[in-house]
C-alpha cells in the first residue's frame, strides 16, 4: 500500500552556516500493508511529523522514493499529486478545522474540491458525519464543539472522500484520556469497518498498544526498530524502544521504585515475564511449589497488547537461599528468568 524507499528529508541550516543542515528524516525504508494500522512512535523532534508529511508529499523528500498504491509520487506532477492527495485523508493534532465553515461545510469541503455535484456533496458529507456520530451538529460551528467532537469532525472530513489511507498526526495528543479512548475507538472502526489503512504518529506508546498492528520507533530521523506491535512490546531491543515499552506497560520497577521495594521487602526480588498464553505463568507456580518457596507480589504490570497478555511480575521470594538459586536455574533453563 505505502512504501518508503530510503527516504530522507534534509533542511538547510536556518542561519546559513555550512555543515549545520538538519536531517529531519534519515534514510527511512518502511512498508505499510494495506488494511493495517501502522504506528510511528518517537519523542518530539524525532522526525515522525515530517515522515508522515512525506507520505502525501506535503513535504517533498530530499532523496528516496515514496510509493502509494504502487505509484511513485515523485514521478507525478503537482496536479496529479493533488489528485492522489484526495485519496489520502489527514487528521491533525490541532484539528485544523475551518472556523469560517459549519461542521457540515468543513466535511463538505474536500468533496467540493473533487468536483462532485452539490446534492452528492451534501449526501456524502452527511453520511460521514453520521459515521462519526455528529449528524445532529451539522449546522454548528467548530468553536461550539468540544475537543473530542472537533477531532471527530476532522476525521469525518478526512473520510468524506472515501480515501484508502488515513494519516493521523498526533490525533489524540490534544485530548484528555477519556476522549482519547473515544477517538481511538473511532479510528479502529475506520480501519475495521471501512478497511482504511491508517498511519498514525504519536509520542504515546499507549496509543500504539491500543490500536496499532505494526509499529516503527523513530529517533533522530531514523527508524531504530520496527515490527509487529506484540513483538516490539515483548522483545524491545533499542534503548529508546525499551523506555517507550516500559512507559506503556509499567511492568518493571525503575531505579527509585526498586530501591523502595528493596527497603520494604526483605527477601530476594525476582522479575518474571508474563506473555503469550498462561503456560508461562503455570511454569513458575509449578516450580515455586516444587522448591517449596513462598512469595509475595512486590510489583506487577500486566496488560493486553494486540489482545494477548504481556507484562511482568516482580516477586519477593522467601525460603532457603539454595532453593531460590535452584528455582532460578530451572527457570532460566526454561528460558523465563530475570532476577531483579
Amino acid at each position: 500500500m505505502i512504501e518508503l524507499r530510503g527516504v530522507s528529508k534534509v533542511y538547510p541550516a536556518r542561519d546559513g552556516k555550512r555543515g549545520s543542515q538538519f536531517r529531519a528524516v534519515d534514510e527511512v525504508s518502511l512498508t505499510i500493508r494495506e488494511g493495517s494500522v501502522f504506528g510511528v512512535v518517537g519523542h518530539s523532534g524525532a522526525g515522525k511529523s515530517t515522515l508522515l508529511r512525506l507520505v502525501n508529499y506535503l513535504e517533498v523528500p530530499t532523496s528516496g522514493a515514496v510509493l502509494v498504491d504502487g505509484q511513485d509520487l515523485g514521478a507525478l506532477g503537482e496536479r496529479r499529486r493533488r489528485a492522489v492527495r484526495q485519496s489520502i485523508g489527514m487528521v491533525f493534532q490541532q484539528f485544523n478545522l475551518f472556523r469560517s465553515r459549519t461542521v457540515l461545510g468543513n466535511v463538505a469541503y474536500p468533496l467540493k474540491l473533487s468536483g462532485l455535484p452539490r446534492a452528492e456533496v451534501r449526501a456524502r458529507a452527511e453520511e460521514a458525519l453520521r459515521f462519526v456520530g455528529l449528524a445532529e451538529h451539522a449546522r454548528r460551528y467548530p468553536e461550539q464543539l468540544s475537543g473530542g467532537q472537533r477531532q471527530r469532525v476532522g476525521i469525518a472530513r478526512a473520510l468524506a472522500t472515501s480515501p484508502k489511507v488515513l494519516l493521523c498526526d498526533e490525533a489524540t495528543s490534544a485530548l484528555d484520556p477519556q476522549t482519547t479512548g473515544e477517538v481511538l475507538a473511532l479510528l479502529q472502526r475506520v480501519n475495521s469497518e471501512l478497511g482504511i489503512t491508517i498511519v498514525l504518529i504519536t509520542h504515546e506508546m499507549d496509543v500504539v498498544r491500543g490500536i496499532c498492528d505494526e509499529v516503527a520507533v523513530m529517533e533522530d530521523g531514523k527508524v531504530v526498530e520496527s515490527g509487529s506491535v506484540y513483538d516490539v512490546f515483548s522483545r524491545p531491543e533499542h534503548p529508546t524502544t525499551v523506555s517507550f515499552v516500559r512507559s506503556a506497560l509499567h511492568d518493571v520497577p525503575d531505579g527509585a521504585a526498586l530501591e523502595r521495594l528493596r527497603a520494604r521487602h526483605g527477601g530476594r526480588l525476582v522479575t518474571l515475564p508474563v506473555s503469550g498464553d498462561s503456560a508461562g505463568t503455570h511454569e513458575w507456580s509449578r516450580l515455586l511449589r516444587r522448591h517449596e518457596l513462598d512469595f509475595s507480589i512486590a510489583h506487577a504490570g500486566v496488560g493486553e497488547v494486540q489482545s494477548r497478555p504481556l507484562g511482568s511480575v516482580t516477586l519477593e521470594l522467601r525460603g532457603p537461599d539454595d532453593a531460590i538459586d535452584a528455582f532460578l536455574t530451572e527457570l532460566a533453563a526454561a528460558g523465563k528468568a530475570a532476577a531483579a
Binding site: N56, L58, R85, I88, G89, M90, F92, N96, F98, Y109
Partner: peptide
Amino acid sequence: EPGVIEAARSMGA
C-alpha cells in the same frame, strides 16, 4: 493558522 492551510493542501486543494 498555517495548520488550516496545510489541511486544505492535504485534501488536494
